[in-house]
Design a protein around this nucleic acid. Structure first.
Lengths: 127, 127
DNA sequence: GCCAGTGACTTGCATAATGCAAGTCTTTAA
DNA sequence: TTAAAGACTTGCATTATGCAAGTCACTGGC
């Protein structure tokens, strides 16, 4: 019944439906993607190794995969900021920055409804 | 480094971190959970079979699992509204209703940044 | 009374995603 | 010359998801 029928330019692949919630989930609704974006947005992280050091401990292969996808989706940009030895920096695009209100709502809901989460965002998010 | 250390009363299981975003994701951040909540919130669906008929086509085992979890998390409530033959109804609790702003932000972001998503939410969400 | 149908699931098995450890490659600093 | 940093890739094990089919309790029609 609900097989993929539409094609999105942002993903370049099949869609489950035309619903904006579904499509947003298909881009950023997994266990790790929004945590990378959190780290960029609130902790000003920029490099692969900085993301690796998150408290949650993402695996290197997963992180590499998510960064690649986010770049494909136009949510982040990757650019070398130094050659020899080459080092890369990842930054949110406007499209990525626009996820801030979504993250803020998650922070808000989490604070209100989950126990063991005490402090305001900035202190909380420290690695 | 990032192994589970805390115990949440809402989940009754280990947490990846104290971050509210992480914890919110661990409750509702997967491919299907928020679609069930969308159906309750915007399409007034209440029964197992109604959820099954979503355009995205969730599998019965996944749906059963998500409803069970959401009940454990206190996000929905299940109650029989008729016996012989027994029929169940699922409803959002306050905790579930409070996810509305999060969903609204997803709709907003999706509309703004993903192609092939034209119409306003209510028409869009039709199954 | 018998049988198809509805609603709410469960079970079994195949495929896909995630997690973990280890390895690669480049370059620099000791 | 050797060790270490940074940014990954590869291989394999574990988990989660997807799909089809089966179950169980009723009920309404013939």
């Amino acid at each position: 019944m609900g097989n993929p029928k539409y094609c999105s330019k942002i993903t370049g692949c099949l869609q489950r439906s035309k619903c904006p919630i579904t499509n947003t989930l298909d881009l950023v609704g997994d266990k790790w993607t929004l945590l990378v974006i959190r780290d960029m947005l609130f902790l000003k992280k920029r490099s692969f190794n900085e993301f690796l050091k998150s408290f949650e401990g993402v695996a290197t292969n997963i992180l590499a995969d998510r960064l690649k996808r986010l770049e494909e989706y136009g949510i982040i940009e990757k650019r070398p900021y130094r050659k020899a030895p080459v080092r890369y920096e990842y930054r949110l695009t406007k499209r990525g920055e626009d996820l801030r209100p979504l993250l803020m709502e998650m922070i808000h809901w989490g604070h209100k409804h989950i126990e063991g989460i005490g402090m305001p965002p900035k202190k909380l998010l420290e690695a």
